[in-house]
Computed example of a mutant assay.
Amino acid sequence: MRQHRDELQVETAGPGLIEITRPVTQFVTGSGIGEGLLTLFCRHTSASLVIQENADPDVRRDLADFFARLVERDPALYRHTTEGPDDMPAHIRGALTQTHLSIPVADGRPVLGTWQGIYLFEHRDRPHRRRVALHLLGT
């Protein structure tokens, strides 16, 4: 059994989904591990990770719009408003999605479906530098 780890830095411009499939795939192919399990972990509480369709950009826009409707940015609804009106809604959106993903690796590549991509989902209004831990265990 071998393992390989690294950290991916993702620059965001505000709310939305940022595809990270390419750098994640480069991490896997560069590891020399052919079969195993890849774990991705978002090191933040106001951003998350999702696997979603990567063919039609309307999917990403619709998801972002849905979450904006689902979790309002009204500061009157929350006690935690220290970091601004988008902070607590971002934490709620993060709780509704995921901070980690597990993806099988076969033949030296992440096993994803034809239309699947890996995304960091930014929930805050202003730009951030997000960190995603990558860990691959296998042979």
Rank of each mutant, 00 (worst) to 15 (best):
I20V: 15
T97M: 07
H80K: 09
E72N: 12
R124G: 02
P57W: 01
V28M: 07
Y78M: 11
R61I: 00
D62C: 05
E7M: 13
G34E: 13
I20E: 09
H100G: 09
R60I: 00
G34K: 13
G84I: 09
L112V: 02
G117E: 00
Q9D: 11
A95Y: 03
Y78H: 11
L63H: 02
D56N: 13
A133F: 08
D6C: 04
I20L: 12
L137M: 11
D87M: 04
G113R: 01
R43S: 10
R109Q: 11
M88C: 14
T12Y: 05
D65H: 14
L40E: 01
E72T: 15
T139L: 12
V71R: 11
A64P: 04
D86S: 07
S48I: 00
S46W: 02
R60E: 12
T97G: 00
W115N: 09
I118T: 02
L120W: 04
E35K: 08
P15S: 15
V10S: 04
T99R: 15
A64E: 09
C42Q: 14
A133E: 13
A133Q: 12
R73N: 15
D56E: 11
L96T: 03
P15H: 13
D62P: 10
G36Y: 03
R124K: 07
F67I: 05
V71G: 09
V28R: 00
R129I: 08
R129V: 12
L101P: 01
D65L: 12
A133H: 09
E7W: 10
P127M: 02
V132Y: 05
M1V: 06
A47H: 03
V132E: 05
L77W: 13
H135E: 10
Q3C: 12
A106F: 04
P15V: 14
T29M: 08
F67Q: 05
R60D: 11
A106L: 10
Y119F: 15
D6G: 10
A106V: 01
G138V: 01
D86N: 07
T29A: 11
R22E: 15
L112Q: 01
L37R: 08
G36A: 05
T139C: 11
H135V: 11
M1Q: 08
I18Q: 02
D62S: 08
H123V: 03
G34N: 10
D65Q: 13
Q116C: 03
A133D: 12
T81A: 13
E72D: 15
Q52P: 01
A90T: 07
D107E: 09
H128G: 03
T45V: 12
L96F: 07
T99I: 13
R124T: 06
R69H: 13
E83D: 15
E11R: 14
Q52L: 08
V24I: 06
H44T: 10
Q116I: 08
H44K: 09
E35F: 06
L8I: 04
H91F: 02
D125Y: 02
C42N: 13
Q26N: 14
A95V: 10
